[in-house]
Design a protein around this nucleic acid. Structure first.
Lengths: 343, 343
DNA sequence: TTTTGGCACTCTCAAGTTGAGATTGCTAAA
DNA sequence: TTTAGCAATCTCAACTTGAGAGTGCCAAAA
């Protein structure tokens, strides 16, 4: 399983092969590696090494008389052990700075902008996922009567997130009662995380003198108010980049990938499940749980907004310039954290 | 310019040709029309008629030995004068009902659901555009302190819309002052439309005893708070349907269309500019202002949410089953209006 | 023992060829 | 006014062909 015992030569061949393949998208032959990358060896020798690498499952031949292409495992080894961190170019850094600073008007707009920046700079699909509210600390809860039987619930969370939910009842509710409710809710709940609230809501509101009819809506732990499924927002920008990639020449493949992208819920769950710890997380091809993404890689990183955190990153074909992308995603995540936290 | 003086036969040929072409996507020959549609005429006669229609610019030949395909003008005549309203099937009506009723949790979620419904049922790209806030009546405005130098402004509008904007200052603001501000703003502004507020804000807040530093943010008519550019949200669902259409076999074309779809601002402006009056609006191929949409048609309709209104519809290749789509979009718009207004 | 040159072998891909099939426009007859 | 007949045109899929790329392996060289 471990590929630590690769010879130095094998490593260099793998590295050069991947670098070249990422650029050209064409299977790489022994001659190219021997000549273009000046390894001081003849193509024949390279060929022998390539045979070894193929036996190890790191590279593969599309057909007999073609060069080799990296396998998912090959990319994995490359990413884990061979990757040289490529520093961000001054140009890229500048672009990110400019584009990220120009975005105002609420976290949602900023996240949209972030995904756009990522998509544009990397020529991949840029994505951003809004923070999960579960860890968010409630700062204020508003109840706004809309019409007979409808109220708008607004939940504001520390660090500038807010979301609104439209609730319905059978019958109208006196405005006084609503005010009262609002007061009590704010009093008893603000300062707590939404996750915490969900678990303890029934106890916390047990002894209020409020109308049980109204109360029922909030006390229910299953109430939509305290859930954040349906609510984590996913932005994805740069599908046109994806379409241009040769790996998506197959329309069916492209179509099913796009469908998966629109099925946001699953995608969000998947990406969140991978991006647990700190730092960059890379998922390559068959490592992806989603069927439609078996030929894609994901480079993702967390960002913070106060004490909640979300994920941004890029999606593209497994053949992607990992080292460059890592720097970009990393830096963008940092910029985003900065833009969202109290600067 | 007017095609009212088409002979009866010409009309029938055009009609049958379009119906057949929409189904098959293949150029339609004289034989098919003569036989399959039992016009009681020989192919040769049909051919003569087709020549006339071609001279009128209603149909065209991709190449010498192919059948004919409708031109944009041909579709236009079809839509304007030949279309028979196709009643909604019970199945479609049922689907729309079920899918639309299952959506809760704020207007944004409902609109997302609407675009999804449209996309799925029509096998085209379903779109929905959130109402413009300009006409919306302010019900409540909240100022929520987030951190030193940041406040969250929440604007709730009659009928359940809300949006939040993150504002920044150089220096902190005492919480009392903020409360005061909130009070005054609500007192003086609620009940007015946002458009109205924007125009009259400076007079309305002239004589308050509030801190000018804070006031400045709100009084400025150009302030982000009163604008709704950047804010009209566009949902688009069903790109996978589009990809499958033969007219988007060309990757470049597809790619540039997708880019246009992501450039939401322009698209929103364009669609809003078309959909002015009541009822269904159809824009065919070259009638579209946007370059990337020259081979697309749009079927759109307004919906209302209280006293603001937005647009939903579908986008697809010009070769689309107009009559069916019209019924579906129409009905979905009605359902949406119902779901958003006080039921 | 490792590296290399040489060479037969395999496979792809683009270009060219061919023939069947579809459809037209036109003309002359019904 | 309509139709049958027919030559002409063009596409498309199937097939053929040859150049080119790359391999694997063997025997010679280092």
């Amino acid at each position: 399983m471990s590929f630590e015992n690769l010879t130095d030569r094998e490593k260099r061949v793998l590295q050069n092969l991947i670098v070249h393949y990422v650029q050209t998208a064409d299977p790489v032959g022994s001659r190219v590696i021997a000549n273009k990358y000046r390894m001081g060896l003849s193509p024949a020798t390279i060929r022998n090494t390539m045979q070894d690498l193929e036996e190890l499952g790191l590279i593969a031949q599309p057909h007999t008389s073609a060069g080799r292409v990296p396998t998912d495992t090959g990319y994995r080894v490359f990413v884990d052990t061979l990757l040289k961190a490529e520093p961000l170019t001054e140009a890229d850094r500048g672009k990110i700075k400019v584009l990220m600073s120009g975005s105002k008007g609420g976290i949602d707009a900023i996240l949209g902008q972030a995904s756009k920046v990522l998509g544009e700079i990397t020529s991949q699909l840029g994505i951003s996922i809004a923070p999960r509210f579960d860890e968010g600390v409630l700062t204020r809860l508003d109840l706004i009567p809309i019409s007979e039987g409808k109220i708008l619930v607004i939940i504001a969370v520390k660090s500038g997130l807010a979301r609104s939910i439209l609730m319905e009842f059978e019958s109208g509710i006196p405005i006084d009662e609503l005010r009262q409710m609002e007061l009590v809710l704010n009093e008893r709940l603000s300062g707590l995380t939404l996750g915490h609230i969900r678990k303890t809501i029934s106890e916390r509101l047990a002894d209020t003198g409020l109308s049980p009819k109204l109360l029922k809506l909030f006390v229910n732990a299953e109430s939509e108010i305290w859930q954040d499924r349906n609510q984590s927002i996913l932005h994805a920008t740069g599908t046109d980049n994806l379409i241009k990639q040769p790996e998506f020449a197959d329309r069916d493949k492209l179509s099913s990938l796009m469908k998966a992208l629109e099925e946001k819920k699953e995608l969000i769950e998947f990406i969140n499940s991978k991006s647990i710890g700190e730092g960059i997380v890379i998922t390559i091809g068959s490592e992806n749980d989603l069927d439609q993404m078996q030929s894609c890689s994901v480079v993702a990183s967390k960002y913070r907004a106060g004490n909640v955190s979300g994920t941004i990153g890029i999606i593209g074909p497994t053949r992607m310039p990992y080292s460059r992308l890592i720097s970009i995603v990393e830096y963008t995540a940092k910029s985003l954290t900065k833009a969202l936290s109290g600067s």
